[in-house]
Design a protein around this nucleic acid. Sequence first.
RNA 1: GGUUCGGUAGCUCAGUUGGAUAGAGCAUCAGCCUUCUAAGCUGAGGGUCAUUGGUUCGAAUCCAAUCCGGAUCACCA
Length: 593
Amino acid sequence: MSIISQIQATTVQSLTALYNQAFTDKDFQVNQTKPEFEGDYTIVLFSLVKSLKQSPDAIGNALGNYLQAQYPQLFTKYNIIKGFLNLTVADSYWVQLLNANHQNIHFGKKESNGQKVMVEYSSPNTNKPLHLGHLRNNFLGWSVSEILKASGYEVIKSAIVNDRGIHICKSMIAWQLFANGATPQSTGIKGDHFVGDYYVKFNDEYKRQVDELMGAGATKADAEKEAPIMKATQQMLLDWEEGKPEVIALWKTMNQWVYDGFAITYQRIGSDFDITYYESNTYLLGKDIVQQGLDKKVFFKKEDGSIWIDLTADGLDEKLVQRKDGTSVYITQDIGLALQKYQQYAINQSIYVIGNEQNYHMKVLQLICQKLGMPNAEGIYHLSYGMVELTTGKMKSREGTVVDADDLVDDMIATSRQHTEALGKVKDFTGAELDELYNILALGAMKFYLLKVDPKKTMVFNPQDSIEFHGFTGPFIQYTHARIKSILRKVEAAINPETSQQQALLLLEKQLLVQLEQYPGIIAQAAREHNPSVIANYAFQLAQIFNSFYAEHSVANAETPQKLQLRLQLAAFTANVLKSSMQLLGIQVPERM
RNA sequence: GGUUCGGUAGCUCAGUUGGAUAGAGCAUCAGCCUUCUAAGCUGAGGGUCAUUGGUUCGAAUCCAAUCCGGAUCACCA
């Protein structure tokens, strides 16, 4: 039970005994005491004034006295300032916490709750490589999965690959026209970049043809429709849908190039999936559902044969669910896939990590599922995250301002090498050890940079800040961990499982313990809000406090043998929680750096 | 225009169900390495919490209006 819960419970009990009426923990607030006042936790008394008809001071004195008398093992002191009852929690409480948990690498994590949740994330298109926006998505999806696991859920990670449609055909046509049989192997270009290059070539050629036609007197609309390369692309899409063998063969070949490229990127950034869905397999799902919807009169048919749902009563529009030619649209396959996920895994919850530009779409998806009475409808949750913008504005592929994921990783590794070499602390590392360290630092910096901001918010990617290794960054926390490990390696004395509960704590020792004690609550909050930034902020604060402690007090040369033991435990506990919290962000921490 | 999300220090961001003098990091300035890793620590300056009104013991936080910015409102996915 957290210290705050204990304070709430004991306060409820005390108030009930003192005033002979019923209270709940909603009747007052318990906050951490501000550093400028004496005490650890504070009960705000104002909310009690009205119902008790007494001054805040009177209530505070009665309550403080009672708490201290009844729970001496918990509270040793109190003071009242302007309606705030500041309680000092007994040092023995903190030392006990330390004794019990300093070696527990599972501290803060919950036992299984029997709930199954699917997290769908990443969801790339197969016509271009991953960029910065995908990185935010991937890091979020991974981290939220870890946080949910730590909260007792069984997590299934999934991706839906958008591997069909007109955009794929564009790359294919351009390859046929311009590649002369070139392949990733023959050119040495990573497969996803290779295919992405032909997507760019398509657009260049398309624009050229449109300009040419307009130069010959065509209107813009006609030119766009009549451009030969576009007509060829549309024909190819039809051929694909009919299963024309040579088109299918090319499609499979080019997609495989992309998958090979993605696999490398995913491996580098640490993304993985328990199940991968492909739109080419799922795009026909949902046809049965459309029929069911018609039967249930949730959907209706228009004169031209197209099928719709009327969502005007919910404040939205009419939404198409099937074209007049009987082909399904985006939303339809999503409904089908949502049901398939549920049937396949019996999940209680289905989380979609998708950008906030799809808020409307996801709202419609959930509404339709609800109206159809689908069993999984209530469990759909859209983890909507904001765009990543550049300091110069938005990323635009047409203007070449997209930050490529692979380039970014390469740059970060180079930066890690530079910083590390400049400091010269790991000269005895082997080449392989150095590579591993650069990798850990580079990914740590990137992931932390993208995860430290509330997912809901649009964020700005500043190249200078992103390669920063000081301050509120991943490497700062990694460094703190490495520092602690260095102490633990060097100090001769072994850590005892128990230290005396009688000793008095210094301010910074207690601050560390107060922060450590909050870790379980932080994990719970992050899971509740689907918000890794909660963890990032927490880990940073913990590292900050440790570094202040480190500068002020020595572990190895502690004043007494008891202090040595206490601080060894404190250091180990901090290292464990830093490692654990960074792991929830998908970030490794090195033993040395 | 409808819906929706946002606006906090020069910049990037925290700020819990309303609580004490609104906090970090970066940048700027001044200090701290013969003792556990200076990728660190200590201190200083920097604020009309977009604006106005309301709710109350108390508002960055809740409500209303206004201003500014993003997203979205496809027989694209």
